[in-house]
Amino acid sequence: MKVRIDYSLCMGDQNCHKVCPEVFDFDEDQLQSRVRVDTVPAHLEDEVRQAAKDCAPGAIIVEA
């Protein structure tokens, strides 16, 4: 699984970072999230899907 962020939509509320800090980092300067991994570890896929579902503007794009 791969995941990326649409930065036109990311609103910097850090929800994804709270849900899955291993995959999502937070850029304090740009006030936006960053993806830390090229491929999502299998044991974190559910958290990443949850983060995508919880993202209010729909900025997280999950690619199988």
């Binding site: 609103m11 509320d13 993202c55 209010a56």
Partner: peptide, 17 residues
């Protein structure tokens, strides 16, 4: 407020597109 921000961000993207 967080949900409202989410809707606003979507519509800003629409405006830009």
């Amino acid at each position: 407020l967080r949900e409202e921000h989410g809707r606003i961000m979507k519509m800003l993207a629409v405006l830009q597109r």
